[in-house]
Design a protein around this nucleic acid. Structure first.
Lengths: 333, 333
DNA sequence: TGCGTCAGGTTTACCGGTAACGTAGCCTAG
DNA sequence: CTAGGCTACGTTACCGGTAAACCTGACGCA
């Protein structure tokens, strides 16, 4: 807590005023080289640690605190986004305040309410589904906000992402081209995950238009990991064995599904096709490269951070940034 | 930034003093039920958002900011630790300030220097290797510090983790019991990752004592992911084909290694054994369950948060908490 | 009647910076 | 030689809370 020296102490020891010390330490102007050297030396000797609490409070804005809220901390994809954001922001001296909302708009609102109290310079949120209370809060806070992952044409402020609906639609088209006609879907988190739901919608819509609608779907209430994929496929096939391809909520679940298929002696892709989403590293090195949609997660984080910083610097940034996704044909679809 | 209403505004509108509003809103005592209801109603009507910057500054301590520094944000394991910490802390109203140090003690110091300026209530650091500057900084800040992952018998303050040396030693013993005699090692990050190095040391020491020292090692300068495991094993085997088991830096690399082995037609575990470390979910559902050391990552996060909170509440917590690890025999070793 | 006590407040003094403004001394151009 | 400008500072006020000290009227009670 109380770190010994403050500006006053340095000022006294260096024989100047507090204000001069403040100017020197922040690299401003209006002091001689001589004064600067003296102040810097004294500050170092006293082990001065600035008090940002005071600085931010005095200036009525935190200046360097950025809040970021993700659905889950345990997803590999979010880790990469976080990494992209952190690299871009920490280089510029910003601090990252993070939280998880567990795919709940209400938890997100609660988190934002806490974080807004710190007067952050900006916020990065996941998804485009927010409570009315959240929107009010953000509007009155007047801090820059970037919504990431799911593209929205009318963002609260800025938006970085892509269309999940289109991802699903594109995968649907691809699998139809590969001759698949009886598709199933294995998801997770039920309706909590709006983005996964959008992919499913896009997928289903495309298949239906082509006259081969989704044959079966299994949406678990579990976290979308390997286990859920494994058991999800088991359940799906027990209900509806005659499927020629299964689209999974994400790559982790798809890999779990592949493990199940192999354990049942089903050949992939001959007996059953498997497709995922997300583009996790493991998926590209498995014995058979997974058919999936690769999302450039780090790019999302980087773009979000850059959009935020541009806004903070008063530069006119883009309101909506589209980050490309790429359908990786792979060998399992 | 400027959120409209402050205590003064509420005070005026409710016909009481600022101080009374402060007490009501913080749930203190010294006001009538009548006053309380009035104040709460007014605060709500004005959409009051407390200013923690001011509160923390005024009280000369942040109260609810906790800093956490991890080596990399992109590791699946750290995501789980983060999750454990976040769950435990957010429930108690703390905010998490995170950063990555890229396995560099200098970057860690730089990060701490930034974060200390916010006068955090506590800090969670990874590993036990810190610069002298860091130690000074922490001592003068006098904030509770928890070092996680690698157990140290003389922590700066508190420590939660286990011995990486012992993990390596245990795996060495296990592989010897399975009859392995010509072991190799594939690691990453060179000497930057002290913990991985400790596992290697423990592994090597055990093998040497048994008279079957490590035959070859390959330590990449890459991030320890699937690709690094794949190419690491390729390189290792090209130099020294006659290995009967390979110990990997972590599970991700081990899975990459398995992929390489399969691509070369090597049977696991008949032709070559593979062992990992960490216990990632994928490893337990692969066609053959990976031989590895399972680390209860979420437990580390939870324990770290709890130790911190205990200290903050003035309770006498344990200085050193040992989190168990479990050698998972698997089917690949 | 006088006094202590307590609920239910109010007042005051900070916390450590920063913005805005003031000013002394010196230089330079007209 | 003097107005105006620049450099290098110093002064003052304020950000929005909180702790601590201080009031005040009502009530109980000897």
């Amino acid at each position: 807590m109380s770190v010994k020296a403050n500006l006053e102490d340095i000022a006294k020891a260096a024989g100047v005023s507090k204000m001069t010390v403040s100017r020197v330490l922040r690299g401003g102007t209006g002091f001689s080289r001589d004064t600067k050297d003296r102040v810097v030396k004294v500050a170092e000797r006293l082990g001065y640690v600035p008090n940002r609490l005071a600085a931010a409070f005095g200036a009525d804005q935190s200046g360097t605190l950025v809040g970021m809220c993700v659905p889950r901390l345990t997803s590999g994809l979010f880790g990469h986004v976080l990494d992209g954001v952190d690299r871009a922001l920490s280089r510029l001296g910003y601090q990252l305040l993070i939280g998880a909302n567990n795919h709940s708009a209400d938890e997100e609102e609660a988190w934002i309410r806490q974080v807004i109290a710190w007067r952050p310079a900006g916020l990065i949120l996941s998804g485009r589904t927010h409570t009315p209370g959240t929107v009010d809060l953000l509007r009155s806070a007047a801090a820059p906000v970037v919504e990431i992952w799911d593209l929205t044409t009318s963002p609260i402020d800025m938006s970085v992402g892509f269309s999940h609906f289109d991802c699903g639609a594109e995968m649907g088209q691809f699998l139809l081209r590969r001759g698949r006609r009886r598709a199933g879907y294995v998801g997770a988190l039920a309706r909590a995950d709006v983005m996964g739901a959008a992919r499913l919608e896009g997928f289903d819509a495309t298949l239906s238009r082509a006259g081969h609608p989704l044959v079966a779907r299994e949406i678990l209430h579990d976290t979308p990991g390997f286990y859920a994929g494994y058991y999800g496929l088991e359940t799906l096939l027990s209900r509806q064995p005659a499927l020629d391809v299964v689209y999974f909520h994400n790559d982790e679940m798809a890999i779990g599904g592949m493990a199940y298929a192999q354990s049942r002696g089903l050949r992939v892709p001959e007996d059953i096709g498997i497709a995922g989403w997300g583009g996790m590293e493991a998926a590209s090195i498995l014995p058979r490269r997974l058919t999936t949609t690769v999302v450039t997660t780090t790019a999302i984080g980087k773009a979000a951070a850059e959009a935020l910083v541009a806004r903070l610097k008063g530069e006119a940034g883009q309101d909506v940034t589209v980050v490309p996704t790429r359908l990786e044909p792979g060998a399992t679809g």
